[in-house]
Design a protein around this nucleic acid. Structure first.
Length: 489
DNA sequence: TCTGGGGTCCTAGGACCC
DNA sequence: TCTGGGGTCCTAGGACCC
């Protein structure tokens, strides 16, 4: 156990909404809701101004609109968020090689493994804590200066307490928990404060009369394991007593890749469903190939009209990144599912990832076979042991069945992107655009053949609104602008 | 008011092997 | 010949997180 609170957890405040407010001066101080804006969309993130109205993450956007009818509702701009995220993560990596990124806006850092490590190790406990405080305040100030965004930080002797502290620090704050005070801090908290305790676990604990962490900490590990199961019970038992020795682990490899779509209207037609699976398989494969990996288990996910969800999976004989194989497997799996009554969501995923493919294995096997052949020729004539000539059903048959399909259906489907948006003249609220004369702005809304654009940039005053025909050739989609001018410029 | 998309980890049963 | 136990893999589902 550490004597200095040298593990920090950093969490960007209302990340997506904050990026939007930084990019769009007219939205500062206003309720901003970022998420899916279709009939089945949900809120990803909302600004603190929106939370006053009761808007929350994961809430149906339709509900949010009723609670907060005058908010700005925007589609997410992931490219812009990723750019900000990378800036922040780079700043964290300057503090330590041990940076564990949990999501686009959240990370642990082990300061003891970085340049401040020796000073922290040499410091008396009180001095060490003050050094951590200074490092964190500098970091928060640097982040705000370089990205125009605020971050909250928790610092403690463990990941558990650092995470709890950052939650307490929000928004735009810093909280340290000195080692030794874990149980004092945790004790009065509701059980839901523990990471990993969600609605189901909370219910179980409440039925056992346990509301606070201190009450849970009084139970024995055995009792908690009986209530919550082996692994979860043991984990909650340790957490409740403030015990956590998990190390900060950088760069963990992904274990699965998946894509899914919820459709505006339930799908009923079988051929349409199979076609959508092909499209999802293609998207999944694109992501897989971008990471240079391949997968052995293919899984499909089906959510029915009544929100009941099921999965079907099949493990192939070897890893693949072949679109035809994955699409054909997905179709085979779909044949096992009752698709009647309407499908609201489809997904395709791949797990058991490897850094090579079945084809690599074939090539390797062929090379080995060739060598063996040479050896065999050199050796005395001998009876060949029966080579196991089992066909490889997944690869062989599946690829064949796809080739037999009407060619080019999925191959001809265009990739959705800025180009397609431009061609179809679909303007999404929040989207970056440029007008040839009026310059950069963003789409405020569109309908009945018109699109409304506000012309402003991160460093301009709030801008004016103009309306155009949706197919106005002067108006084009554009890339996000940096929230702050680059330091050299 | 009606529920996204991307993940991780755990459990449990059955098959299969030793 | 019958019975049992343990380990591993596969599949399906669920809880949880951001």
């Amino acid at each position: 156990m550490r004597t200095v609170p040298s593990i920090i957890h950093l969490d960007m405040d209302a990340f997506f909404a904050s990026v939007e407010q930084a990019a769009k001066p007219s939205l500062r101080g206003k309720p901003v809701i970022v998420g899916g804006l279709g009939g089945r969309g949900v809120v990803s993130t909302c600004s603190y101004e929106a939370r006053v109205f009761g808007v929350r993450s994961a809430m149906a956007t339709a509900v949010a609109r009723r609670l907060c009818p005058n908010g700005a509702y925007l589609w997410p701009r992931f490219t812009a968020y990723r750019a900000c995220s990378e800036q922040v993560m780079a700043m964290l990596r300057a503090l330590s090689p041990l940076v564990e990124q949990l999501s686009v806006d959240e990370a642990y850092v082990d300061l003891a493994a970085g340049p401040y490590g020796p000073a922290l190790a040499a410091a008396a406990p009180g001095e060490g804590a003050e050094l951590v405080r200074a490092i964190c305040q500098d970091l928060r100030a640097d982040i705000e200066e370089r990205t125009a965004l605020t971050a909250s930080i928790g610092a403690a002797g463990s990941k558990l307490m650092a995470k709890i502290a950052s939650e307490q620090a929000k928004p735009d704050g810093l909280v340290l928990v000195n080692p030794g005070l874990e149980r004092t801090v945790l004790g009065p908290m509701a059980v839901r404060a523990l990471p990993g305790v969600g609605p189901a676990t909370e219910q179980v604990l409440r039925r056992a009369g346990l509301m606070t962490v201190a009450e849970v900490a009084e139970l024995s590990e055995e009792e908690l394991m009986r209530l919550l199961g082996k692994a979860h019970g043991a984990g909650v038992s340790l957490m409740a007593r403030g015990l956590d020795d998990r190390p900060v682990v950088p760069d963990r490899d992904a274990k699965s890749v998946s894509v899914e779509d919820t459709y505006e209207v339930d799908l009923a037609d079988r051929d349409r469903i199979l076609h959508e699976l092909d499209i999802l398989a293609a998207r999944c494969v694109r992501r897989l190939q971008a990471t240079g990996r391949s997968g052995r288990t293919v899984v499909i996910k089906v959510r029915r009209f009544d929100f009941s969800t099921l999965t079907r999976s099949e493990t192939l004989r070897g890893p693949t990144d072949d679109e035809g194989v994955i699409a054909a497997t997905a179709r085979r799996l779909a044949a096992q599912v009752n698709l009647t009554g309407g499908i609201r969501l489809l997904g395709v995923g791949v797990s058991q990832l490897a850094d090579f493919t079945q084809e690599d294995l074939f090539a390797q096997a062929a090379a080995e076979a060739a060598l063996a052949e040479l050896d065999a020729q050199e050796a005395a004539e001998e009876e060949e042991p029966d080579a196991e000539q089992e066909p490889l059903p997944e690869s062989g048959a599946a690829a064949g069945s796809v080739a037999a399909e009407p060619a080019g259906v999925e191959g001809g489907a265009p990739a959705a992107g800025a180009g397609q948006l431009a061609a179809q003249r679909i303007w999404l609220p929040g989207q970056d655009v440029t007008h040839r004369e009026l310059g950069p702005g963003w789409v405020q809304g569109s309908g009945v053949g018109r699109v409304t654009v506000r012309f402003e940039t991160p460093d301009s005053p709030p801008g004016r609104v103009r309306t155009f025909l949706v197919d106005d050739p002067e108006l084009t989609p554009s890339d996000p602008l940096p929230l702050r001018p680059p330091p050299d410029a």
